[in-house]
C-alpha cells in the first residue's frame, strides 16, 4: 500500500504495520478461496454454518487487520476526511433510497476519500464505514472487507489518473464493481442466503429459475448490480471532485502529488465529460 524503499532502509516501526497489512490481505484472500474455490459441500443445499462463521470472521478480521496496519501511516489531513467519507456513505445511501434510485450509492464517501487521500485511506474508510454502519444496520458489517477493497481499488485508479476523465472513471468503476461483486457474493450467500433488496433478488431469482446454484446466481447478480452501482459512483465522484474548488483538492497531499484530476484541478470542463486538463 505504501510505496517505499529498500528493506535495509525500512524503519523498524514500519515492519509491524506491513505485517498487519500482509496478514489482513492474506486472511481475506484465504477466506475467499476457502469459500469459493473449495466450496464446502454443505453449502449446496444446507445452511453452511462453518462457512458463515468463516465468512464473518475472515472478512471482518481481515478488514480489522488492514485498518490496524493502515491507520498509523495516515496523515492528519487524510484522517479528518475519513469521518466525512463515512458519514457521506451513510447519508447519501439513505438519500438515494429516498429519491427512489435502484442502486445503493453507499460507497460515494469511500471513493471520494480514496481519490483525495489515497488507496490506504480509501481502504480504511471502506472498512470502518461498514463497521460503523453495522451499528445501525447489522447486515452491513460482514461486507467490511469488500468495502475496503472498493476503497483500495478506487485509490489505485486515482493514482493512475483514471479520475482525470469521466469515461476512464466509468471504466475503473466497472472493473472495481465487478471485483467488489465477486468478493461480496459469498458473504451475501453464506451469511444471509443472498437475500437483499427486491431488485437484486429478482435478478438472483432469474438465475435460480435457470437452475444455477445459489452462489453462482448471487455472483452473477453481484457482477451486474455492483458494476452498475460502481460506474455511477465513480462517475459521480469524478464530477464532484472536478467541481470542487482547486484549493479544496490541493489540501490533500495525495491528490496534489498524484495530480488525480489533472494539472488544472477544479473547473467545470471535466464535469461536462471532457478533459479536466492534463498538466
Amino acid at each position: 500500500m505504501s510505496s517505499s524503499s529498500a528493506p535495509a532502509a525500512e524503519p523498524a516501526a514500519l515492519r509491524p504495520r506491513r505485517l498487519l497489512l500482509a496478514a489482513g490481505g492474506t486472511l481475506i484472500v484465504l477466506t475467499y478461496l476457502l469459500l469459493v474455490i473449495l466450496q464446502p459441500t454443505e453449502l449446496a443445499g444446507g445452511m453452511g454454518s462453518v462457512a458463515a462463521l468463516v465468512s464473518l470472521i475472515g472478512f471482518l478480521g481481515g478488514g480489522a487487520l488492514l485498518v490496524a496496519g493502515i491507520l498509523p501511516m495516515l496523515s492528519t489531513s487524510s484522517l479528518v476526511v475519513m469521518p466525512l467519507g463515512i458519514a457521506l456513505n451513510i447519508a447519501i445511501g439513505q438519500l438515494a433510497g429516498s429519491l427512489g434510485l435502484q442502486i445503493y450509492l453507499d460507497a460515494i464517501g469511500t471513493v471520494l476519500v480514496a481519490v483525495l487521500a489515497g488507496p490506504a485511506a480509501g481502504a480504511a474508510t471502506g472498512a470502518i464505514s461498514n463497521a460503523i454502519w453495522g451499528l445501525f444496520n447489522p447486515f452491513a458489517l460482514p461486507f467490511a472487507a469488500g468495502a475496503a477493497l472498493i476503497g483500495l481499488l478506487a485509490g489505485l485508479a486515482a493514482k493512475h489518473g483514471l479520475f482525470r476523465r469521466v469515461y476512464t472513471a466509468a471504466g475503473a468503476g466497472l472493473v472495481t464493481g465487478a471485483i467488489g461483486g465477486l468478493v461480496a457474493a459469498p458473504v451475501a450467500v453464506f451469511m444471509f442466503g443472498a437475500a437483499g433488496t427486491p431488485g437484486t433478488n429478482a435478478i438472483i431469482a432469474v438465475f435460480r429459475s435457470l437452475g444455477d446454484k445459489l452462489l453462482l446466481a448471487a455472483t452473477k447478480q453481484g457482477l451486474l448490480s455492483d458494476s452498475l452501482d460502481k460506474i455511477v459512483v465513480f462517475v459521480l465522484v469524478a464530477l464532484i471532485v472536478h467541481a470542487l474548488p482547486q484549493r479544496a483538492v490541493r489540501q490533500f497531499p495525495f491528490a496534489r502529488t498524484q495530480r488525480v484530476i489533472g494539472g488544472r484541478g477544479g473547473g467545470r470542463s471535466a464535469a461536462r465529460g471532457n478533459d479536466a486538463g492534463t498538466a
Binding site: A195, T197, R208, G211
Partner: peptide, 11 residues
C-alpha cells in the same frame, strides 16, 4: 425477500 427467493426459486 428471503422467503420469496427461496420459497419460489429453490432448484
Amino acid at each position: 425477500s428471503s422467503l420469496l427467493l427461496h420459497g419460489l426459486f429453490f432448484p
